[in-house]
Simulated assay, not measured.
Amino acid sequence: MHLIITDARLARSRAIHLSGTRLLLAGLALSLCLMLVAATLYHWVFLKGAREGWPIVGSLVRLVVKDEFAERDRFMRANLDAMARRVGEMQARMVQLESLGERVLGLAGMAPGDIQKADARGGALVSAHNLSMEELQTTLDELERLTNQRVDLMTVLESRLFDQHIRKKMVPTHAPVTGRSAGSGFGWRLDPITGQSALHTGLDFQADTGTPILAAAGGVVVTQEYHPAYGNMIEVDHGNQLVTRYAHASRTLVKQGDIVRRGQKIAEIGTTGRSTGPHLHFEVLVQGVFQDPQKFLSAGGTTTNAQVAAAQGAAPTPGR
């Protein structure tokens, strides 16, 4: 682009050449000047007019600001309503969780008074549309507090139920021989060898040699040896001074110090030691005192022939 500037008084002219780059720079400079002028006008006219209350400018600025505030308020209100609905749903879930916790307390054998509970209870919001930001924050804080309490409660319940589960697995209620009937029960009887009255300290299970002998509960093997009377014998400690004894085995499959689980095969039936035929002599000792094994097996749902015979008044089959 060529621009020719002519001076009439001096009777001369001057030519100016503008390239594309120069035109672009000139346009940018002009745009920047216009922006600065517009910003200056806004600052000195509109803002000053709004502050000083100019009739037209002040009303126009207040209208624009009012629309902006109204739009912002509608946006915040919509978000508050959505959050309030979510808080209401969370409160309803908290009520359900509290009821569930009370039921689980019963399963764990605990009374509701065993756990310190909060006075505040969850519930649906009464008027979500009229809830302010402060009220919403207060409700959220209360929900957080209740959630922490429920977490603590569930942790205690989990510990109690796990402890009960472990204790149940450590009580000898599993039949040491499956699918086989019991012979002589616990108590006084005529000894099959001497023919004299003697205390039978356990429960006999008659079965063929080689029949699996199972651990009546989980525990640690404390004895695995040959005993003159008991023959090949295994003793399992279940904790709380509770021990089970398995005698007359033909073969033992565990050794002292082994950890056995409930129902695990630990030996095979035989007729070693003081025995008149292949069978398992099963004993339960609490603090070193012989107990009737049938009481423990009955707690696990195991009914033996000795128990049926005792109920019918028949004499049990002697084992040893």
Rank of each mutant, 00 (worst) to 15 (best):
8 A>T: 12
314 A>G: 03
190 L>H: 07
118 A>D: 15
178 T>W: 06
181 S>D: 03
259 I>G: 09
71 E>N: 05
124 A>I: 13
56 I>D: 13
103 R>G: 04
198 A>V: 01
251 R>N: 09
133 M>N: 12
98 E>H: 12
275 S>E: 07
202 G>Y: 03
192 P>F: 02
145 R>W: 04
141 D>H: 11
223 T>N: 13
181 S>N: 07
203 L>C: 03
137 Q>R: 14
198 A>H: 10
121 R>M: 09
1 M>E: 02
281 H>W: 08
261 R>S: 13
316 P>Y: 01
256 Q>I: 13
170 M>Y: 06
243 V>N: 01
288 G>H: 05
169 K>D: 11
300 G>T: 03
60 L>F: 03
174 H>V: 00
64 V>H: 06
60 L>R: 07
116 Q>G: 05
219 G>M: 12
19 S>K: 01
54 W>G: 00
232 N>M: 05
258 D>A: 10
40 T>P: 01
286 V>Q: 15
219 G>H: 11
165 H>D: 12
7 D>L: 14
39 A>F: 04
139 T>L: 15
121 R>L: 05
210 G>M: 03
146 L>H: 01
128 A>M: 07
220 V>F: 06
263 G>N: 11
131 L>P: 06
48 K>C: 06
170 M>H: 12
237 D>I: 06
210 G>S: 04
15 A>C: 04
66 K>S: 13
305 N>V: 02
247 A>T: 00
26 A>I: 13
5 I>Y: 11
217 A>S: 04
202 G>L: 01
135 E>C: 10
154 M>H: 02
53 G>T: 05
69 F>W: 09
206 Q>K: 06
238 H>C: 06
150 R>Q: 08
8 A>C: 14
225 E>N: 05
139 T>V: 13
190 L>G: 04
179 G>Y: 09
252 T>A: 09
129 H>L: 14
119 D>M: 04
33 C>N: 12
240 N>A: 02
185 G>L: 01
72 R>N: 08
231 G>L: 03
176 P>C: 12
314 A>F: 08
164 Q>P: 00
165 H>F: 13
32 L>R: 09
203 L>F: 01
136 L>G: 07
293 P>G: 11
194 T>Y: 02
220 V>L: 15
43 H>E: 11
272 T>F: 12
27 G>K: 08
4 I>Y: 15
316 P>S: 02
2 H>T: 14
28 L>M: 11
121 R>S: 07
276 T>P: 15
258 D>Y: 08
25 L>H: 12
57 V>P: 04
196 Q>S: 09
277 G>I: 11
307 Q>E: 11
225 E>Y: 00
43 H>G: 06
279 H>D: 10
227 H>R: 15
170 M>T: 06
13 S>R: 15
27 G>F: 07
